[in-house]
Simulated scan of single mutants.
Amino acid sequence: MPVQVFGSPGAAALPWYESLERADGKRQLTADHESDAVHMAVGWARTGGRTGFAVAAPELPARTGARSGAGLDGLLAGLRTAYADAVPLVCVTGRTAPPGRDGTAVPAAALLRSARPVTKAAVRVEDPARVPQALHAAFRTARADRPGPVLVDLPYGTADHDALLGALDEQDCTRSDDGRPHRAPHRTRRFVVCGRGGPPGGQVPTAVGVRVALDASGHRDTTVVALAGAGQLPYAVGALGAAARYEVPFVLAVFDPGGRDGCGRARELMRVYGCSGHRVDGRGSLRSAVAWARKECVTTARPVLLLIAARTPAEVRAAAGTQTLVTRVPHPRVPPEA
């Protein structure tokens, strides 16, 4: 299964995207924000047992405005999730313009200082000749001992280095980064992705990563269900747009026990993206609605919305016949002492 690249817009990332487009256009998926890109890579890594890969060009918080998940804060939120869940991940960042000509990029020193508490390592490569070595070391570090994220910052002018594709191609061998065989994807017919201790709406981009990994490994008959509250949906707008744009099918179960206002906004949002939706009120209709949503998301190749009133996530998991649960944990798990 080729390593999937999840990225967010940024001038420093454009040469990488162009190289990937020429090599294999299906190998990349562009998210609206840094947080979404990292969470997609987390879902992909957790499902396929491989090292996730994300590309970001974060801007200073003052320049991101009201965009949820954008800039340095969004990047750190995604890295913290990977660190807490011990998910192997390599995140490559870069400046958006030559030093001294644009003040929107996060200074390298500030980026590394902010990322070190939520990563296994955060390093900056100054010499373009050291880029291949740094990327290979990052993949090894991400999987060694307790897995976790590694950030590699590249200065302006090295973004188009061929080492990026070379490092990714090397990960496509039959063995993982630590020399052991790759762990096969979960043998299950249904996945449920929920948020627990992570940023609001983070389960939606994670579900996108899970779905992409399952499709790449040949498990197209596996259903992915993302659970979210009606209040979390505004934080997942960018991830839903990416799922519709790249035709990533999954079921989005939204809980709105307090009233119909959230339902109306959710339906309007899904209509904008050309996605189907269905409201579930009666207890007996939940199982049949989940069955309909499974078929509908495959037929339309888009997310499908289930608006659920007066239900708990446990009831939906039971109706979906879930065997595997992908979650967030609020704090890092401390590895046992040697």
Results as ranks from 00 to 15, higher is better:
residue 133 Q to R: 12
residue 130 R to Q: 14
residue 141 T to K: 14
residue 217 S to H: 13
residue 207 A to T: 01
residue 213 A to E: 07
residue 177 D to I: 09
residue 206 T to N: 02
residue 205 P to M: 08
residue 168 L to P: 01
residue 128 P to E: 01
residue 181 P to A: 01
residue 196 R to Q: 12
residue 132 P to N: 07
residue 159 A to C: 10
residue 147 P to V: 12
residue 193 V to Y: 07
residue 200 P to H: 07
residue 150 V to D: 08
residue 189 R to H: 15
residue 181 P to I: 03
residue 150 V to R: 03
residue 133 Q to K: 09
residue 131 V to E: 00
residue 209 G to L: 06
residue 171 Q to V: 06
residue 171 Q to P: 06
residue 203 Q to W: 04
residue 128 P to T: 02
residue 121 A to R: 09
residue 132 P to Q: 07
residue 148 G to E: 08
residue 177 D to T: 15
residue 197 G to C: 03
residue 135 L to H: 01
residue 184 A to V: 12
residue 146 R to P: 09
residue 158 T to D: 01
residue 179 G to T: 11
residue 198 G to D: 10
residue 217 S to R: 09
residue 192 V to P: 00
residue 189 R to D: 15
residue 173 C to R: 13
residue 142 A to E: 04
residue 192 V to M: 11
residue 124 R to F: 09
residue 121 A to Q: 10
residue 181 P to Y: 02
residue 193 V to I: 13
residue 181 P to G: 02
residue 144 A to H: 14
residue 147 P to Y: 13
residue 182 H to V: 13
residue 139 F to D: 07
residue 147 P to R: 05
residue 207 A to V: 01
residue 197 G to P: 01
residue 199 P to R: 12
residue 125 V to F: 08
residue 165 L to D: 06
residue 188 T to P: 00
residue 208 V to C: 14
residue 149 P to A: 09
residue 168 L to S: 03
residue 204 V to M: 02
residue 133 Q to P: 00
residue 141 T to G: 09
residue 177 D to V: 14
residue 136 H to T: 13
residue 179 G to A: 04
residue 133 Q to I: 09
residue 213 A to Y: 08
residue 170 E to A: 15
residue 171 Q to C: 09
residue 171 Q to D: 06
residue 184 A to G: 09
residue 199 P to Q: 11
residue 128 P to C: 02
residue 137 A to G: 11
residue 208 V to A: 12
residue 156 Y to L: 11
residue 154 L to N: 00
residue 157 G to P: 06
residue 204 V to T: 07
residue 137 A to Y: 10
residue 175 R to G: 04
residue 158 T to K: 00
residue 143 R to H: 09
residue 192 V to W: 04
residue 205 P to N: 05
residue 207 A to P: 00
residue 216 A to K: 04
residue 183 R to Y: 08
residue 138 A to F: 11
residue 204 V to N: 01
residue 173 C to D: 15
residue 129 A to H: 02
residue 126 E to L: 11
residue 176 S to L: 08
residue 134 A to T: 03
residue 155 P to H: 12
residue 127 D to K: 05
residue 126 E to P: 03
residue 162 D to E: 14
residue 144 A to E: 15
residue 162 D to W: 07
residue 199 P to A: 14
residue 141 T to H: 13
residue 185 P to W: 13
residue 202 G to V: 11
residue 171 Q to Y: 05
residue 186 H to E: 15
residue 137 A to V: 10
residue 202 G to S: 13
residue 178 D to H: 04
residue 170 E to I: 05
residue 159 A to I: 03
residue 199 P to W: 10
residue 213 A to C: 06
residue 197 G to K: 07
residue 157 G to N: 03
residue 173 C to K: 11
residue 196 R to C: 10
residue 123 V to I: 12
residue 214 L to M: 04
residue 166 G to R: 12
residue 125 V to K: 05
residue 154 L to V: 13
residue 197 G to L: 08
residue 123 V to C: 02
residue 194 C to E: 15
residue 184 A to P: 00
residue 161 H to T: 07
residue 162 D to I: 05
residue 183 R to H: 14
